[in-house]
């Protein structure tokens, strides 16, 4: 065990897109990060048993955490993003935990790995704890704290109506509806 009381900071920040693809045969969804300056689009393509089609691009970032004191580096390139639980399903483990945490003024945030979920890509409790420490070190914890949970707690992804903390519509051509264009 290291003696260092780690003080984490973000490093290696990469901006890009989280790309969502869907298979038209099995309805499975997969995601990946693209560091490109433009969204991914194009025709569907066949890969083994799957026929993938790009569904959505969300602007996002990837980062690693490094300890300011001892220099220890933790990579988080397997994190797709963070989700805020809207408690849409009463029997969802995240919703149940969130209600419990709320009493202690603790906010729950769900760390997402890329889809589909695989055993070898799950976020370990140790790494979730590092994320949690990082966000708490960044805030005034006398007011409230953050708890980071794994997306493995969500049983049925297709029923989840949580809020992804992603940028959507940055490149959208759709103007906001509330004002008329000036020209």
């Amino acid at each position: 065990m290291s003696e260092c009381q780690h003080q984490w900071e973000m490093t290696n920040i990469r901006f890009g897109f989280v790309v969502f693809e869907k298979c038209s045969h099995c309805n499975g969804i997969r995601t990946f990060f693209s560091a490109s300056g433009h969204p991914m689009v194009g025709d569907e393509y066949v890969e083994g048993e799957h026929t993938w089609r790009c569904m959505e691009n969300a602007q996002s970032l990837q980062f690693d955490l490094q300890c300011k004191q001892c220099g220890q580096l933790e990579k988080f390139d397997d994190v797709m993003g963070f989700l805020y639980c809207t408690e849409c399903l009463d029997d969802c483990k995240v919703a149940i935990l969130q209600k419990k945490y709320a009493e202690k003024k603790t906010w729950v945030i769900v760390a997402f790995g890329f889809l589909p979920r695989r055993k070898d890509t799950e976020l370990s409790p140790r790494r979730l704890k590092i994320l949690e420490d990082y966000f708490n070190q960044r805030r005034d914890t006398s007011r409230s704290t953050i708890a980071v949970l794994s997306f493995d707690l969500i049983d049925d992804f297709s029923r989840c109506k949580g809020e992804f903390i992603h940028d959507v519509g940055m490149l959208s051509l759709e103007p906001p509806k509330e004002r008329k264009p000036l020209f």
Partner: peptide, 15 residues
């Protein structure tokens, strides 16, 4: 499914 997760993109036709 994507809308359920808060994603969506328009076509800019109103503009």
């Amino acid at each position: 499914e994507m809308r359920a997760l808060g994603f969506g993109s328009g076509m800019g036709l109103p503009n």
